[in-house]
Amino acid sequence: MVRIIAFLAGLVFVMALVVAMLIPRQPAVENTAHHFHVEPQEVAFASDGAFGRFDRQQLQRGFQVYKEVCAACHSLRHVAFRDLTELGFTAPEVKAIAKNWAIEVPSVNPDTGEPATRKAIPSDMFPSPYANEVAARAANNNALPPDLSLMTKAREGHAEYVHGLLTGYRKAPADLPAEARPGPGLYYNPVYANLNIAMPPPLVAEGQVSYADGTKPTVDQMAQDVSAFLIWTAEPKLENRKRTGVAVILFLLLATTLAYFAYQNIWADKKAKPLPQA
């Protein structure tokens, strides 16, 4: 009885699928965005690989790019000023960075209770450039600049995508269909999934920031540096994780080897000795 019911149920499911399989399909339409899309190029970061470490000089340069370029529109709300000590800044330097930050931190006037702002201190998170989403959209042609804290983990392609996007702005190709051309307030960037992005090209010219360590601030260099910085903001415990991982794997290899010999030792009297093959 069970088998008869099962057979009939199976038959019905299979028939539903066979009917679906046989129904003719609309011919696939080639997706314009897909056709013109460009994959971000490969970039090597010091933090890559099992033994990867942050290049602190590069993180500081990347922070400078964030501060002087990105921070005008993008928040970094999961990162605090105090975290900058991990980039090699000293405590007084961090204090100065917080104090001189262009955007002040929302606060309350202690005398009147009215909303107010104050200078940032190291324990503050990086303040958002906009009071709220409406203000952000109003200032950006109705586009919302996303928070950058987790950007390198929140996109397919990770830091390479960020670098690719920052360096990916092009003139729209001549054969681009009209409906895929950038509208008003949009910019052609084939690394971006739908080709047209609301963010104006942020890194436009060599020397847009001047690095204190003498590194040549090409557009590609600035894009790499800020991408490396955003790897750190997304995963500040990366070095600790990889260092711990190497120790854990070494320990487990040793422990597992010992466990293997213990297993072999315990089973020594039970392992069959196969008869010689005829």
């Binding site: 088998r3 099962a6 057979f7 149920a9 199976g10 038959l11 499911f13 299979v14 699928l17 066979v18 679906a20 399989m21």
Partner: peptide, 16 residues
């Protein structure tokens, strides 16, 4: 659709 059909066929039809 083909693979799902095999899944059901495997258990409900082929196996018995």
């Amino acid at each position: 659709q083909f693979c799902a059909a095999y899944y059901f066929a495997h258990f409900l039809i082929i196996l018995p």
